[in-house]
Write a protein that binds this DNA or RNA. Structure first.
Lengths: 103, 103
DNA sequence: ACCGCGAGCTTACGAACGGTAAGTGGATCG
DNA sequence: CGATCCACTTACCGTTCGTAAGCTCGCGGT
């Protein structure tokens, strides 16, 4: 029995996703960039509580995993990659869920 | 213009969601309970790397926020609440995204 | 050429969070 | 009565995070 239960058997997909999303601010940064490309300072100002230190760290992780791209010609402008955009439906589902609870 | 841009204006829904999901193991625990109710020890054994200490902590947070319910009559059996179940579509979207990348 | 300024990081350090392992208390079995 | 299992708890230490300061580079003014 039990030849293929989904969650974490053979392919811990959710686990690998939450190595990124399970870190603070990551989802918020992606969500902000979903609207429009933004510079370091803009992101920093747009997300209250997020410090420059962590923002730099997260942006490094996100560019390293190819969810976000940095344009050096345009004074450090950050934008979602195609990979990154494909994550947005999931994030929006979760937002809808959160909106229906409290807020 | 801009009477209601989504992300974090007036109602930081994603932010509040990721106060929970942004912590390690939380999503994995919910995902495991999505299949079937489970006891403390079962969850602990099912998720490699998750320690008893953190599991107890996460389960407290999840029951406190009413995503998970604990049945004390049945020797600490944990299960998703209706609230918790409504989160699953979002998690599954994210799993699909992760599966399509690597794995 | 020089100075000041703002933007984009980087460093330093104390506090909070997470990992490991050992311990507690209650129920069950021999 | 002792041994075992289960659901946590506690103690300890390393990693991550938050705060604040500093560094570097490009640009505008003088």
């Amino acid at each position: 029995m039990d030849t293929a239960s989904q969650p974490l058997e053979g392919c811990p997909a959710l686990a690998s996703a939450f190595e990124l999303l399970g870190k603070r601010w990551t989802a918020l940064i992606l969500d902000l960039l979903a609207e429009r490309p933004a510079r370091f300072g803009e992101i920093s100002r747009a997300i209250p509580g997020l410090s420059d230190r962590l923002l730099a760290e997260r942006l490094k992780e996100l560019t390293a995993t190819d969810l976000v791209r940095r344009d050096p010609t345009e004074n450090a402008l950050y934008d979602l990659t195609e990979e990154g955009r494909r994550l947005l439906p999931g994030l929006n589902e979760i937002r809808r869920w959160a909106q229906s609870r409290n807020c």
